[in-house]
């Protein structure tokens, strides 16, 4: 079997890599949308924010490969993390495939399979568990070249939003594996 990807690049894929479990798991995660209804019109790719700056990123091909269970190359390359989750592809899709939901499902699957996400996302997960926010409050430079933090701007002190141990345990259970 031969599948076209990334413009003119031709990649031969072995049929024995086919894994119907992938489509099952993705279908479960993207409910009520329906990746199995994709007929490869590529309207999603014509709308895609990421495609405009990273031409190798093509949502309709990601959906096709996912339907075939051929996601190993896709996950190895890490290109799924290029998706900006702007939801344009879903709006353009005439079949309610919701390619963005497929990509989010693939991201989730890749984490569950032990692939590493981009470093900044790992930090965000750690910060959310430990601080309650994706980053600690920073000092910013003003136009007068002075540094301002919340205190200097007379904004209320930022407290940790979680006080209950149950919240922290829940978040550790859900996100701990990402950064530990």
């Amino acid at each position: 079997m031969v599948v076209l990807t990334g413009g003119s690049e031709v990649v031969a894929l072995e049929v024995r890599l086919l894994d119907s479990r992938v489509l099952r798991e993705v279908k479960e995660l993207v409910r009520p949308h329906s990746p199995q209804h994709c007929y490869q019109c590529a309207k999603c790719t014509s709308a895609c924010t990421a495609t405009k700056v990273i031409p190798d990123y093509k949502p309709h091909l990601i959906v096709a490969l996912t339907r075939l269970g051929l996601i190993k190359n896709l996950l190895d390359s890490g290109i799924i993390w290029a998706c900006t989750e702007c939801w344009k592809c879903s709006e353009y899709c005439p079949q309610d495939v919701a390619p963005v939901e497929v990509v989010i499902a693939l991201k989730n699957l890749s984490i569950a399979m032990g692939y590493k996400p981009p470093e900044d996302l790992k930090m965000m997960a750690k910060n959310v568990v430990e601080l309650g926010y994706i980053s600690p409050p920073i000092e910013v430079l003003s136009k007068e070249f002075e540094m301002y933090g919340r205190n200097a701007l007379a904004l209320p002190e930022l407290v940790k939003p979680y006080t209950h141990e149950g919240t922290i345990n829940n978040l550790k259970k859900l996100l701990g594996g990402v950064y530990e």
């Binding site: 995660l29 990509v103 006080t163």
Partner: peptide, 17 residues
């Protein structure tokens, strides 16, 4: 103050989170 992060930036890591 007890709100914190809505989780939106982390849905790729874990949709349930």
């Amino acid at each position: 103050a007890e709100a914190g992060c809505c989780g939106f930036p982390l849905k790729g890591l874990n949709r349930r989170a």
